[in-house]
Measured scan of single mutants.
Amino acid sequence: GQVNVNNTTYTFPTPKLAKEFAQKAAKKYNLTVHVSGNTVTVK
């Protein structure tokens, strides 16, 4: 799974890890998680 945070893309071996990372990043920066297919964007 891929996660985009502040124009930086992070790649994870599983969608589960990507989702967990996205949720932590969203909480940390007070942003929202947007899911589109296999790509998760935090903005």
Rank of each mutant, 00 (worst) to 15 (best):
G37I: 03
N7H: 15
G1M: 13
T41V: 10
T8L: 12
V40H: 01
K27D: 07
K28E: 09
T8I: 14
K43M: 15
N30T: 04
T14H: 04
P15N: 11
Q23W: 13
E20I: 14
A22W: 02
S36C: 08
F12K: 00
V42K: 01
N7T: 15
K16E: 14
A22H: 01
K43Q: 14
V3R: 07
N6I: 14
K16H: 09
V42H: 01
V5T: 11
K28Y: 14
K19P: 00
A18S: 02
K19F: 12
K43W: 15
N30K: 09
F12Q: 01
K28G: 04
L17F: 04
V33R: 00
K16A: 13
P15H: 14
T32L: 08
V5F: 13
T39R: 08
Y29R: 05
P13G: 06
T14I: 02
A18V: 01
L17G: 04
T41R: 05
K28D: 07
Y10E: 01
P15K: 10
F12I: 01
Q2R: 09
F21T: 01
T32M: 08
H34T: 14
N4S: 12
L17I: 07
T8E: 06
E20G: 05
K24Q: 10
T41M: 07
T9R: 08
V3S: 12
K43S: 14
F21Y: 05
Y29P: 07
N7L: 15
P15Y: 09
V33A: 05
T39A: 05
L17H: 07
T11I: 13
V5M: 12
K16Q: 13
T41F: 08
G37T: 02
T39S: 06
V5E: 11
E20Y: 12
N4G: 12
A25M: 15
Y10A: 01
L31T: 06
N30R: 08
A22F: 02
P15G: 06
T11F: 09
A22P: 00
P13A: 14
A25N: 03
N30S: 06
V42M: 05
V42T: 03
F12D: 00
T11Q: 06
V40I: 04
F21D: 00
T32V: 13
T11K: 07
L31W: 13
T14M: 02
P13Y: 05
P13L: 10
N7P: 10
T9K: 08
L17M: 13
N7V: 15
Y29S: 05
K28Q: 09
N30M: 07
K43F: 15
K16Y: 08
T39I: 10
F21A: 03
K24I: 14
K19Q: 13
A18Y: 00
L17Y: 04
A18R: 00
N6S: 13
G1L: 12
T8S: 08
V42L: 09
N6K: 14
V40D: 00
N6M: 14
V42Q: 01
L31S: 04
N38L: 07
Y10R: 03
T11P: 02
Y10D: 00
L17W: 04
T11W: 13
P15E: 14
V42F: 09
T9W: 06
Y29F: 08
P13M: 08
Q2V: 12
V40E: 00
V33T: 04
N30Y: 09
G37H: 04
L17T: 04
P13V: 06
T11R: 08
G1E: 11
L31P: 01
K16N: 07
T11V: 13
T41G: 02
E20A: 14
T14W: 03
K43P: 05
Q2W: 11
V3G: 12
V42P: 01
N4R: 09
V3F: 10
N4A: 12
K19S: 07
F21N: 01
T8F: 15
T41Q: 06
T9A: 05
N6Q: 13
K28W: 14
Q2K: 10
N30E: 04
Q23F: 11
N30H: 12
A22N: 01
A26E: 08
T8M: 12
A25E: 03
V35G: 01
L31I: 10
F12H: 01
K27F: 08
V42S: 01
Q2N: 11
N4V: 12
A26F: 09
A18Q: 00
F21S: 00
K19D: 05
F21E: 01
T41E: 05
G37F: 05
V3Y: 07
K27P: 02
N7W: 15
T8A: 08
T11N: 05
Q23R: 15
P15Q: 10
P15F: 11
T11E: 05
Q23L: 13
G37R: 04
A18P: 00
S36I: 11
K19N: 09
N4F: 10
V3E: 11
N6L: 14
T39E: 05
A26D: 03
E20M: 14
Q23V: 12
K28M: 11
K43H: 13
V33I: 07
A18H: 00
V40C: 00
Q23P: 00
N7D: 11
N38H: 05
K43A: 10
S36R: 09
F12L: 03
L17S: 05
N38I: 06
V40Q: 00
S36N: 12
A25S: 04
N30G: 15
G1A: 12
V33W: 03
V40T: 01
H34W: 14
S36A: 09
K24E: 06
K19I: 11
L31E: 03
N30I: 03
T11H: 10
Q2E: 10
A26H: 07
N7Q: 15
A25C: 15
A26Y: 07
K16T: 08
Q23I: 13
N30F: 09
V40W: 03
N30L: 06
K43Y: 15
T41P: 00
F12P: 00
V3P: 12
V42R: 01
T39F: 05
H34I: 15
K27T: 08
V5Y: 12
A22Q: 02
K19V: 08
N38R: 14
